[in-house]
Design a protein around this nucleic acid. Structure first.
Length: 305
DNA sequence: TGGATTTCCTGTCCGC
DNA sequence: TGCGGACAGGAAATCC
């Protein structure tokens, strides 16, 4: 499940690999995965053939200037007046192979038992081919992700780029900024607040659980019940945990893979996420889990108050 | 306006 | 061996 550290890993790698490359061919194998223009995607996405044709036509011949990120959205910027916005959601993957690597086989599911597959697989929905024969594959098992092509003029009107809270690794994300966010949602469980993209950008289920653990605060604690020390512990844990995730090239619990198909290593450093029923690495107490709406949150009942 | 709920989607896992 | 159902979850839409 790509969150800020996973998306940052992909962005760093793609920026290095794709900058200066020119697209010669675009293959869209699942039409509903691509979109044009700034509007939000309807709940039930329908394939619109004319849009797919236009999507391909606009991208052919484009040269990539840079690959950046806002929250969990990947922004591929072209020298022309276009940007491609990509959201990986839960199971989206970008895998890049040079021409000489195209026969390479990878495990796109992060289990040792998953089969080694050559690309494209049946989950490969979009393929970009570059002038040097290299290819970029977009895979997405659950089809929640999307690739949205917008013009530079449309960029300020893209709703999903407007409604993000501050970047938690930016210098501007001070303790005062965090305190102000907490003041806006006194009744919210701290876990809910951490994953709300309109309040803080980029944190999802994995990292919110790990941040709560490091701060020794239970995910269900309502914001207004946190004392000053606890609030500061949460604030300090946010960049600490996110930077750790980036250093490990992401967590590969779930379906995340790096752009060469290899796995991130953050998973083995998790204290609580996906560890319900296992002993706490600090105190040995059984890790418990609870539900917030549709989301599961794990915590140590002894280490976290 | 905040908060809860539903929806999109498919692979995996568990019980029978 | 196969089937049904629960579950996983980011975030938009919808409802109260």
């Amino acid at each position: 499940m790509p969150e800020l550290p996973e998306v940052q890993t992909v962005v760093t790698e793609l920026n290095r690999k794709l900058s200066g490359k020119k697209i010669v061919e675009v293959s869209v194998r699942l039409p509903k995965i691509v979109a044009l223009g700034p509007g939000t995607l309807p709940p039930k996405r329908r394939a619109q053939v004319h849009k797919v044709i236009k999507f391909i036509k606009l991208l052919k011949g484009q040269k990539i200037k840079s690959v950046t990120r806002r929250a969990k959205i990947i922004i591929i910027d072209f020298y022309g007046p276009l940007s491609l916005l990509v959201h990986l959601k839960m199971t989206g993957q970008f895998i890049y192979f040079r021409k000489s690597q195209l026969q390479k086989r990878v495990r796109i599911l992060n289990k040792p038992t998953a089969p080694l597959l050559s690309l494209p697989t049946k989950y490969t929905h979009v393929i970009f081919t570059f002038t040097d024969g290299a290819k970029l594959f977009f895979n997405d098992t659950r089809q929640f992700g999307y690739l949205k092509l917008v013009s530079d003029a449309e960029l300020p009107h893209v709703r999903e780029l407007q409604e993000f809270g501050p970047e938690p690794l930016a210098r501007a994300f001070s303790s005062q900024v965090f305190e102000n966010i907490l003041k806006r949602r006194p009744n919210m469980p701290i876990k809910q607040l951490l994953v709300d993209q309109s309040l803080i950008a980029g944190i999802g289920n994995i990292y919110s659980d790990e941040i709560s653990f490091r701060a020794k605060v239970r995910p269900a604690r309502r914001v207004k019940t946190l004392n000053e020390k606890e609030r500061h512990a949460v604030f300090a844990a946010i960049p600490f945990i996110l930077k750790k995730g980036i250093a490990a090239k992401g967590s590969s619990v779930g379906d995340f893979v790096r752009t060469d198909g290899s796995w991130g290593t953050m998973g083995k450093y998790h204290y609580v996420y996906m560890r319900a029923g296992q002993p706490c690495k600090i105190c040995g107490t059984m890790i418990r889990s609870m539900k917030f709406g549709a989301r599961t949150s794990s915590f140590c009942p002894k280490c976290q108050k």
